[in-house]
C-alpha cells in the first residue's frame, strides 16, 4: 500500500468531519432528525404534507455551502473522472441502493455508527467494501482512468 502523502489532508479532513458531526448534532438535538442525506432527499419524493419544509431547507443549505464558501475563499479543486454515461449510471445505482439500504455515507456511516446501530455498522462495512472492490475492478482490472 502506497500512501499519496501530497494529497493526504489529515487535519483539514478531521476538521471537516467535525463540522459534519456538528451539523448532525444540530439536526438530531433540535429537530429530532437524523442527518442522512439519502433519507432526507428520498423522503421528499413521498410527498407527505408537513414533512417537506425542513427537508428542502436542509438540501438548500447543502447546495448553498459552496456559494457561501466562495465568499471567503476559492473552492478546492473538483474533478469528476467518469464519462457522463458512467456518472448517470452511478447516480441511478446510488439512488436505488441508498433507499433500499435505508441510508448512505451520512445516515449509516456517520449517524448510524455514532449511535452504534448494528444495521448501520453492517451497511457501512458493506458499501465501503463494495466501493473498494468496484474501484479496484475499474482501475486495475479493466484499467479505465486513474
Amino acid at each position: 500500500m502506497l500512501i499519496d502523502w501530497n494529497a493526504f489532508t489529515p487535519w483539514a479532513s478531521l476538521a471537516g468531519g467535525a463540522l459534519i458531526g456538528a451539523a448532525a448534532t444540530l439536526l438530531i438535538l433540535f429537530n429530532g432528525r437524523i442527518a442522512g442525506i439519502s433519507g432526507i432527499v428520498g423522503g421528499l419524493l413521498a410527498l407527505k404534507k408537513g414533512d417537506m419544509g425542513w427537508r428542502l431547507a436542509f438540501i438548500g443549505g447543502l447546495i448553498a455551502a459552496p456559494l457561501i464558501w466562495q465568499l471567503f475563499a476559492s473552492l478546492p479543486a473538483i474533478r469528476i473522472d467518469g464519462s457522463f454515461l458512467m456518472v448517470a449510471l452511478a447516480g441511478l445505482i446510488v439512488g436505488i441502493g441508498t433507499r433500499y439500504g435505508s441510508g448512505c455515507t451520512s445516515g449509516h456511516g456517520v449517524c448510524g455508527i455514532s449511535r452504534r446501530s448494528p444495521r448501520s455498522v453492517v451497511a457501512t462495512l458493506l458499501f465501503m467494501m463494495m466501493g473498494f472492490i468496484t474501484v479496484y475492478v475499474i482501475r486495475h482490472v479493466f484499467q479505465i482512468a486513474g
Binding site: 447543502l62 441511478l92 445505482i93 441502493g97
Partner: peptide
C-alpha cells in the same frame, strides 16, 4: 439492507459521489 448497501457501494465506486457531496 444488505443488497441496498452493496448496490450503493458499486455506484459510489463508479463515480466517487455519494448523496451529500452530489448536492
Amino acid at each position: 439492507l444488505v443488497l441496498g448497501a452493496l448496490a450503493f457501494g458499486i455506484g459510489w465506486g463508479i463515480a466517487g459521489i455519494c448523496p451529500g457531496p452530489a448536492l
